[in-house]
């Protein structure tokens, strides 16, 4: 229901007719503002499409997909492995809309490049989400504990985050990648999450520091509410906006981090693959077979961009301050 419609209906519950102070839950407002953010909406649709495409086409975890080929079978090269995908309709001088045998082409040993790219996308998305979840979990806990209890615990935790911030993320991630690259996407994601949480913990700590002084927290403390309950029931729900937004942006940067590691040869190892690994493997093909380079790159950009837009929409939705004009 729109504001106007609601406002014109007299509020029978109170005697103050014609008021437009419409009670709306925080959730409703956030949702409304998010869906008004066109780029975020587009990002969400695009990202949903990529996920469905990547996971349904070649199948996942033993479930077969609808795309006939897989990312391991080699085959004979047709037309030097050029992509058969055509998007230009005939009346514009193209060959019409069709996928063809190998829409994204084939690599040098004849593996279907569409299947390979989809596998890469699956791995990259999986890693990014695992990183996002693990980092958000630890970042939130550390930030909350440090912000709420202050004192020595805070000092220790903050020095710990200082240490983690002095080490560039890529550096520590590279070391972790060297260690865990062979163990598959889930393990790699888990360990990368374990080294990327400090950014979030700083943010959460900041929020906790200001919220813990608020009246409602004082009140809860005064009536003897245990700290754990105050943290989880009273403060955390108020920081959820910050956490969700930075978790989203964290996932986007994890996509890029993973691909950079794999590009350096410190992430996912062959025969398994990821988007970054594909680019790394075919970087010298740029001149002769540019499609081997283009497709995975496009997918990285589309995934990262759409998640970034979603994050921006969430930020506007949770914190509309920036977008409003003040008197």
């Amino acid at each position: 229901m729109t504001l106007n419609a609601q406002a014109s209906v007299p509020d029978t519950a109170s005697d103050s007719q014609g008021m437009a102070i419409v009670a709306r839950t925080q959730g409703q407002m956030v949702r409304r503002r998010f869906f008004r953010h066109r780029a975020a909406l587009a990002g969400m649709i695009l990202f949903g499409f990529v996920i469905i495409l990547a996971f349904s086409s070649i199948g996942f975890a033993g479930i077969p997909g609808w795309w006939g080929k897989n990312y391991l079978d080699t085959g004979a090269l047709t037309n030097q492995g050029r992509p058969t995908l055509s998007l230009i309709p005939e009346f514009l001088g193209g060959t019409g809309l069709h996928l063809g045998e190998h829409p994204f082409g084939q690599d040098d040993i004849g593996i279907d490049y569409f299947a390979l790219t989809m596998r890469g996308a699956q791995q990259s998305i999986t890693i990014a989400f695992v990183v996002g979840i693990v980092a958000t979990f630890f970042g939130t806990i550390v930030g909350a504990v440090a912000g709420y209890f202050r004192g020595r615990l805070e000092a220790v935790l903050m020095r710990l985050t200082d240490v983690m911030i002095t080490i560039p993320v890529l550096i520590i991630a590279a070391v972790v990648g060297r260690m865990m690259g062979d163990s598959g996407a889930l393990v790699l994601g888990l360990f990368l999450g374990l080294v990327t949480w400090p950014t979030l913990s700083r943010l959460v700590r900041g929020e906790f520091l200001s919220l813990r002084e608020k009246e409602f927290v004082e009140a809860a403390r005064a009536i003897g509410t245990p700290p754990r309950r105050i943290i989880f029931r009273h403060i955390l729900p108020n920081t959820i906006g910050v956490i969700i937004v930075s978790a989203t942006l964290g996932i986007a940067s994890a996509v890029l981090l993973e691909s950079a590691l794999s590009f350096l040869g410190l992430g996912i190892k062959p025969p398994d693959t990821s988007l970054g690994q594909l680019i790394s493997e075919y970087r010298s093909a740029m001149v002769v077979r540019p499609w081997l380079f283009w497709w995975p790159g496009m997918f990285i950009i589309v995934i990262a961009l759409s998640i970034n837009f979603i994050g921006d929409g969430l930020r506007d939705a949770f914190d509309p301050r920036q977008t409003r004009v003040r008197a």
Binding site: A39, A252, G297, N308
Partner: peptide, 13 residues
């Protein structure tokens, strides 16, 4: 936003 989403090695190549 595009810049945030570009893999640095890709743009370098």
């Amino acid at each position: 936003f595009i810049c945030f989403s570009l893999p640095i090695f890709w743009i370098a190549v």
